[in-house]
Design a protein around this nucleic acid. Structure first.
Lengths: 220, 220
DNA sequence: ACATTATCGATATAATTATATCGATATAAA
DNA sequence: TTTATATCGATATAATTATATCGATAATGT
């Protein structure tokens, strides 16, 4: 059925973008929308949007487009945002704690239910209603709670060890914010947050832009 | 010369990964390394790595590979990590404050020198040695400091307005963590952090994995 | 000294992803 | 009621990205 073919990664990256836009449109009271309109506003290609949207299974009407509510529902269902997944977080430093209070994750169907740290000084009850426990308790608790998503916000040199513990805990997918490659079995999915990649993009493109401008001004 | 052709985005995404690996290798005392070795350890294709690395301009030696120091230098130079860029951050909430204390950014050549917020309650001197000022001061100060990179960690409905102020401030590249599409002129580069895309990937791939397992167990 | 091997850079092929085109159809206008 | 038009889904083409192949070469072993 819907899962014979995996959704292409670029599509998966764009779908949330459409969703954000569609929620905004809905708030403005727009009932139906076409790919052409979305493409104009987001400065993307309408054919690409139509294809991406089509993957989620919805069918549109010529001349009108799609019903906004149905479209939102179709995408959210495809992305599994409609059923809330529980997650654990390991590493209650600045970034980890910030995530515990980051409300948007819930919108995306991700609920951090408990956090762990190896530093007993950081284990001071709850932060944003999420309990912070010692890492010793992770494997047993996570396994019993049947949680399958783990977030690593610990320092790089602890990441591999944490990943291995997570796998013991029954974690199947790891969201890794530590700048370290994780060596895991094939049946474990790792999503690297790659803040460094973002910065690389920014710095390189900035260089490309300014170099080009310099060249242009020199040739005049 | 090196900037005639823009570096492909996938390459830009992988290069930091190699860097992290190479720094680790260097720490272990490894002096020279081949693409084959890197590929094995990172579970990637050696040809792809060779091509990515080649883009940065370095040449290797048959049978030996590359000198680790030179390779690190070549990549970091290509990514502009060697010259530190100053950045401003707008939105001193949980995430914003966490970033002010996130040491890794400096390693990637990004230095957040000042943060702004519209909420006067959040303007309480320095956090992690970074001053937090009222947003009223942003345009003038940023312009005078000739800062070209801006980070948005404010709520979604403030993002567009902040982006416009940033452009007035002389900002050329924006790293946007707010879940909102930014409408900016062509000459401004926007990198969207897309935490929601990461979550979409995780949730969908998890679904694809478990669906497949279910199917397999049913057919037995 | 010569053969063997690992690796490089370059080039060729395959796969994926993006964009363009086209007939069909629902709505709106004449 | 008929014609015009915007949009859809499907299909075809182009561009980008990934992978495979191959001759050249530096190090190593015989």
């Amino acid at each position: 059925m819907s899962t014979i073919k995996p959704t292409p990664a670029p599509t998966l990256r764009r779908l949330p973008k459409y969703l954000e836009y569609l929620h905004e449109a809905k708030r403005k009271g727009i009932a139906s929308i076409s790919c052409t309109t979305i493409a104009n506003d987001l400065k993307l290609d309408s054919v690409q949007i139509r294809k991406d949207i089509g993957i989620t299974g919805i069918v549109g009407k010529p001349k009108t487009g799609y019903n906004v509510d149905e479209l939102i529902h179709s995408i959210e269902k495809h992305l599994n945002w409609d059923d809330m997944s529980s997650a654990i977080l390991v590493g209650a430093g600045n970034l980890g704690k910030a995530f515990l209070g980051y409300e948007n994750f819930k919108k995306y169907g991700l609920n951090i239910v408990v956090a762990f740290d190896k530093d007993r000084n950081k284990i001071d009850g709850n932060i944003f209603n999420v309990p912070i426990l010692h890492i010793d308790k992770m494997v047993d608790l996570t396994y019993r709670m049947k949680i399958h998503i783990g977030i690593i916000t610990a320092p790089a040199d602890e990441a591999q060890e944490i990943a291995e513990l997570m796998i013991l805990s029954g974690i199947r997918a790891i969201w890794n914010f530590a700048p370290r490659h994780l060596d895991v079995p094939d049946n474990i999915y790792v999503e690297n947050a790659e803040l460094s990649s973002d910065i690389s993009h920014i710095k390189r493109r900035l260089k490309e832009i300014t170099d080009k401008e310099k060249k242009y001004s020199e040739s005049n």
